[in-house]
């Protein structure tokens, strides 16, 4: 995943933008993961029951915990790979925004219920 982003020259600043790109892309991944887990929890009784990490809170506890773990894991992995490089930031930003907007829209119940 990282190979295609390594050949872009750094910006005017000495500090590479890879660490920032890692944070941005991971946030997009986390947003989409949250929406996907929420939809799965809504559609599948087995998954819903699996997501009950805290009984009083119900499936919301597992859905959000899993999404947060996936987001932080993605951030950690991407940061480790990109922190000392400059990447194709325009492309990373576009992908991250697309994931974020998709995640945002998929949390809206009338859209989530289409699946």
């Amino acid at each position: 995943m990282s190979a295609q982003y390594t050949s872009v020259p750094a910006t005017s600043a000495a500090q590479p933008d890879g660490a920032g790109a890692a944070a941005i892309l991971a946030a997009g991944i986390g947003a989409l993961a949250l929406a996907v887990f929420a939809i799965l929890g809504d559609q599948s009784t087995a998954f819903k029951n699996l997501m009950i990490f805290s009984k009083p809170t119900g499936p919301l506890s597992g859905v959000t915990t899993c999404a947060m773990v996936l987001w932080l894991a993605a951030w950690g992995v991407l940061h480790a790979r990109w922190r000392s490089r400059s990447v194709d930031l325009a492309r990373v930003n576009a992908i991250a925004f697309a994931l974020l907007i998709l995640g945002f829209l998929l949390t809206f119940p009338p859209i989530a219920d289409l699946f």
Partner: peptide, 28 residues
């Protein structure tokens, strides 16, 4: 609601990493 902490934690992470140098990274 959970998108708010995801987004703002990312923003804080970028600020911690770049600080005032953020000005030199317009896309970021």
């Amino acid at each position: 609601a959970w998108l708010a902490p995801i987004c703002i934690t990312m923003a804080a992470g970028v600020a911690l990493q770049y600080g005032r140098n953020l000005k030199d990274h317009p896309q970021l």
